[in-house]
Design a protein around this nucleic acid. Sequence first.
RNA 1: GCGGGUGUAGCUCAGUUGGUCAGAGCGCCAGAUUGUGGCUCUGGAAGUCGUCGGUUCAACUCCGAUCACUCGCCCCA
Length: 445
Amino acid sequence: MKSDISGFPEFLPNEQIAFNNVMNTIKEHFELYGFVPMDTPAVERIETLLAKGNDSEIYGLYRLADENSKKSLGLRFDLTVPFARYVSSHHGRMIFPHKRYQIAPVWRGERPQYGRYRQFYQCDVDIIGEDELSISHDAEILKLITETLRDLNIPEFTTKVNNRKVLTGFLKHVIVGEHAEEKILECMHLIDKIDKLSVDEFWKGMEEFGISSKDLTKLKSFLEVEKRGSNEEILKMLKPLNFSAEFNEGVSELETVLDLLKKFGIEDRYVKISTSLARGLSYYTGTVFETSFDDIKDIGSIGGGGRYDDLTSMISGSDKKFVGVGASIGISRMVPKLIDKGLLNCAKSTTSQLLVTVQNRNFIGSYMKLSGKFRRLGIKTETYLQDKSLGAQIGYASRKGIKYVLIANDIELLDNKAIIRNLETKEQTVIRTEYMGKEVVDLLR
RNA sequence: GCGGGUGUAGCUCAGUUGGUCAGAGCGCCAGAUUGUGGCUCUGGAAGUCGUCGGUUCAACUCCGAUCACUCGCCCCA
């Protein structure tokens, strides 16, 4: 992937087609589950953005042209904050549970590097309810994400699942005193990074939270549970730990979600309990999950999400409570990687199915009319309008990946005859062009 | 925000201690092949060597500045 402006990727035609195919597949799956499209402005008020992110994440701070106005806008850095704002301003006219998806670019003011951009697409799905939302939706979202990724024909992937209450239920008991809440959050983030750190680094970091050595031993065995077997076995080991009521609730929710997934027909191999998974975002309160490729480790996660018990409180002070569960797929990171590795088909530099070649330019109108007949049959058709030899015209089709060319000289044209050549098999078929129907559509498939 | 690297044709890059060093491969265009692409062969177009300044008889080569891109860290998708 090359970008002329650092962090703002651009694709060549064949890559863009591959990217859009991925995006369309995701969109189709989201809609198959009844999620409605949603779009919001690229900018939000700075106050809204700062309610969640920090300054460095907001790429480009724009002040409105009116110098007297104190209002300033910034580019969104995710799709959740705009969604929260949207809900808090339109909830009176929305129907709950509300299911929406949004596939759109976001911008971040971070330094770019491989697999990390300043502009990238997020594919978000969320289900949001007023006051409460069945935990079945957690499983539904996981099912949707799993099926979507599965149907993308990408390499093997696994989704790690956990429940925030499992972690907080434990940590609340071992981290107490001043600033306990912040420390718990920090501690969770450290636990989340356990795979990236060395054993020494990790436990050295843990010491800073003032956890007793007895509790650290507990934590250690707890974190190692995930390495010991199947989800069922892990749950069996977690239950008797009985760290606190909240912990038990988390384990029970985790069990419910996994049980539902089984009932919903999602195979066990796609989902794996990970007791160390927390995810960075602070608003998650229950189920959390994160998906990565099994064999491609250097790009991090390709998607993730979770449950949040209070979406809009960070935006508005209203007493209304909106509970949601959502997920996001990071296609801007995933697609270029798959292209680099040759794991995504990007042989075609065109969406055309047929090229109508032009041999006698005096009949250009007839060729165009003929093209129109194919278009009305739903066949994506190009007419070759440059003054080049037939060989060059076919070469053009071949290089772009157009599978069929139509060849006809003026005599054939007047006789309502044409040759359809399949460039992959070299097969040629003579067709009649006055009344074309299903047989032509089948031929060009 | 902090710390490295690189900048020569559309792309990937080579250019020896400053002195025919402005090159190769791929791609592109044309022809061999007057209705039919990929292969092969032949020929062709294409670069103010990132930019500005300095050192020198001489700079793609050395020095400085600047811009751009890039890789790590932080953070994230």
